[in-house]
Write a protein that binds this DNA or RNA. Structure first.
Lengths: 159, 159
DNA sequence: GTAATACCTGTAGTCACTAGAGGTTCAAGT
DNA sequence: ACTTGAACCTCTAGTGACTACAGGTATTAC
């Protein structure tokens, strides 16, 4: 990964898992989990068996959290990390991964948008009477009552 | 739930779990799962211990699948089913549930939209060189490089 | 009669964490 | 030096909504 900060010096301060987690916006449990599944390398331990980290770990974990926030799966993040570790490689694969992810996000957006529209229609048509006359229940009971502009009736529908 | 079809007669044909699943757009495993968690009542069995269903089950399961397709949680579906079972009750609660769900869907849409925009920006700015110069990696490494119109950097970010 | 298909139960796996039990270590204050 | 409380450790189990599999039984078609 590209260094934005100077290299850690020999006298660099080590931090514990709690501070690392705070700095990167996650919880200590999550850090241990990422170590367990190999997204983070096993951290060196102090005399009392507690993990000690440098700023390199903050950068790596921030990268991970940020990619996860973008909705990349853990496996995609693993690949992104591998690529980021070799700055001289062509970035074609990174681009491909990002584009594939964008396509998935857009598909989810489309489905979610059609769900939203249908929900709005359902709610607007509810006259406020009793359940027997309720349009919301009707639409849920019978797919044919849907306006169905988009593909919300598919298999893995909600993103 | 409001009947769209006439009441089942005494001579009605019973169907197996496979046909029920096909009719309602899910798998037999899912039907058994719904029975297990109490969304569907325990089906009567034939001599060989296999579940037999009537069209009532098709209607109920279709309702469930459809509500799930709209993104209602299983617990919300459970409540909707309870309400649908009492057609003379006021539909206020149904309305409330639907509106709450709409709000959640809109929140997810907002987050997802901001993620999509940022992904697009990342990809457009990738000059196609090597990983060391790759804007995608840069943005993932450093949240400050985000355009950040929306709240995609929050806690539970991706819907 | 036999072979293919559908069905049964029960358990474990998925994804990405999160929560808790039960214990150890560290840092600060007295 | 001692005590207290926070932070840390490992290991296991739970979340949601299914899905998959193993190992067996029933039904159906030929």
């Amino acid at each position: 990964m590209k260094d934005q900060t100077p290299e850690p010096t020999a006298t660099e301060r080590y931090i514990g898992i709690g501070e690392l987690a705070r700095e990167s916006g996650c919880k200590p449990e999550t850090v241990r989990y990422y170590e367990q599944i190999g997204l983070l390398p096993s951290a060196p331990r102090n005399e009392g068996n507690q993990r000690r980290y440098t700023t390199a770990a903050i950068r790596r974990l921030t990268f991970i959290r940020h990619a996860r926030d973008f909705g990349f799966s853990v496996e995609a993040v693993r690949e992104l990390l591998q690529m980021a570790d070799y700055p001289t490689m062509p970035c074609e694969e990174v681009d491909t991964l990002a584009k594939r992810h964008l396509a998935e996000v857009e598909a989810r957006l489309a489905r979610l948008t059609s769900v939203r529209d249908e929900l709005k229609r359902m709610i607007n048509q509810c006259a406020g009477g009793n359940v027997g006359q309720c349009h919301i229940i009707d639409v849920l009971s019978d797919h044919r009552l849907c306006h169905q502009t988009g593909p919300h009736g598919g298999a893995d529908v909600i993103g």
